[in-house]
Design a protein around this nucleic acid. Structure first.
Lengths: 128, 128
DNA sequence: CTCGACCTTTGAGCGCGCTCCAAGTCAAGC
DNA sequence: GCTTGACTTGGAGCGCGCTCAAAGGTCGAG
């Protein structure tokens, strides 16, 4: 029977390293310990993969590991934490949008600088 | 005569800490050592402030300190490095845009999740 | 003249997020 | 049976970007 991916295969699919997957598990970012084959090797099922994908989305948008863990804690607690989970996600969303706006503003200034260099180097028409 | 801001004033204006300003200077991110008052205290002039503002824009858009230093090195070298500077900035711009796109994509998935929670908690109309 | 705020330098320390290493276990192929 | 290679654990190490501490100098107000 096919009861899941090896840690190497899961890491590959998720764009992480096996070390990172073990680290996440040890650090409480997963909902429960990953299942093991008879050999003691980890086996990642679809459920695990979906959850870790969400973890990587949170991480890739800048959520700190401790906050991902808080979110995982809430999910693990189960029914009754939905409002807290929603608030956590909305707060994160707010921060991400603010961060995006800030980066875009700074990038605009850098673009301006690029324009100045480009004009100077590639030759500006009509100047003396 | 007014020959510049103290390190505390400069830090305040730039949104950094005095420690960070000293660190940047020691690490080669500034074009030249900051001028000193007779007492040995640093004095930040408009030129310094403008440069450091650019540094913070590069940093805030995710450029690593070592790359900011490479850029500073090029500016310090002077005439003849303009093409290299332009390339460095354009390469950075490319990376920032890619990063923005990735974050936006992940955020979209998180938004979707938020929608699911919101529907479930705040009550979805018309469902059984 | 003293006080307190602010500055100086050198160098250590820290939080984050992995990343790597050593020593050992296990399964499959030859 | 032996080798090979992927896996296991525990714990150390690391690169980044600051951040702080210690010990001392400067300066203006009272």
């Amino acid at each position: 029977m096919t009861d899941g991916l090896t840690i190497a295969a899961a890491a590959e699919r998720l764009g992480l390293t096996p070390d990172t997957l073990r680290y996440y598990e040890k650090d409480g970012l997963l909902l429960r310990p990953v299942a093991r084959a008879a050999s003691g090797h980890r086996r990642y099922g679809p459920h695990d993969l979906r959850w870790i994908e969400l973890v990587t989305r949170l991480r890739s948008t800048g959520m700190a590991i401790r906050d991902v863990r808080r979110y995982a804690d809430l999910v693990r607690e189960g029914v009754g934490t939905e409002v807290a989970r929603l608030e956590l996600l909305r707060e994160h969303r707010r921060k991400v949008l603010a961060q995006l706006a800030e980066v875009q503003e700074h990038l605009g200034a850098i673009d301006h600088k690029i324009g100045i260099y480009a004009d100077a180097i590639e030759g500006r028409e009509g100047a003396a």
